[in-house]
Amino acid sequence: MHRPPIRLALALACFAGAAAGPAVAKDTGLAYISSEKDSTLTMVDVKTLEVTGVIKTCKRPRHMKFLPGGTQLMVACGDANKADIIDVQTKQSLGTFAFGDDPEAFDLSPDAKTAYISLEDEGALGFFDMATKKLSKSVPVGKEPEGVITSPDGKLVYVTSEVANKVHVIDTASGKVVANIAVGKRPRRFAFNADASELWVSNELGASVSIISTKDLSVKDTINFEVKGMRADDITPVSLAMSKDGKTAYVGLGRANHVAFVDVATRKVEQLVLVGKRAWGVGLNKDGSRLFVVNGLSDDMTVIDTAAAKPLKTIPVGRVPYMVVVDD
């Protein structure tokens, strides 16, 4: 993750005490891949596209997110019921802490003081205080909450329920559910468009993406995916990424083994790029020229040239890779 130094200094000044990282963030030029069956993160050099090594972490690492400052990567580990903080400069764990039961997806408030975490077994969204490392609140939602995303202003947090087929919208100040939005079957992950006026949510068993208007909290569009020679049942979209310019959305189509390039303005699928088995997590590099797609059932990661819509290389990573975060 890259931030201009001035903004970074400001950010650190604001959250002094919370962040313990080095004063100056340096982009590592690496992509970090979490793999469900390994207790490690795989590092891949973004330029050479070679694996440079692994970082030990807790059991069954899945969701990852950089803390402000861009030097500490927070990892949720499902089987360990923990989160780990990795210092990407030293490639060492700074320590783990209890982080709910079977944690999977989470997001942070803009000030990184609160982590919002889906508590799957409980059917709740947890508010986790990052200073005390304690759950401060839990808001009941539909069963098996999964994807979590915080609005850029931090006032709302959105969470999907895989069982209720809804997106729950929670006011972070009051902890109240302000809307339940019916979307497609088994909603999973989110991405905002460039100005955050739209929230895209993938429906794994709906073979679709629902587009929610963040102004009136209702579904304004649905994109149904089709892949030639495949049936709707084979198309299981999960992970999403939005290009920096906001013009293109990249959607991993799961078992369809393709990534769809969607033109945000027209909602049209412009390209379908073949990747490995069960395209799961997707991530972009900083200038958006490369899309990284981890393939959950072929234990590898495909790197795509986004301008040409062509795969460049497929790199073996860990067992059952889940997510990729690019830090170039």
Binding site: G123, P140, V141, K143, S161, V163, A164, K166
Partner: peptide, 9 residues
Amino acid sequence: KESDYELGD
């Protein structure tokens, strides 16, 4: 029980 949220809603 697992549908209680939707049922309540």
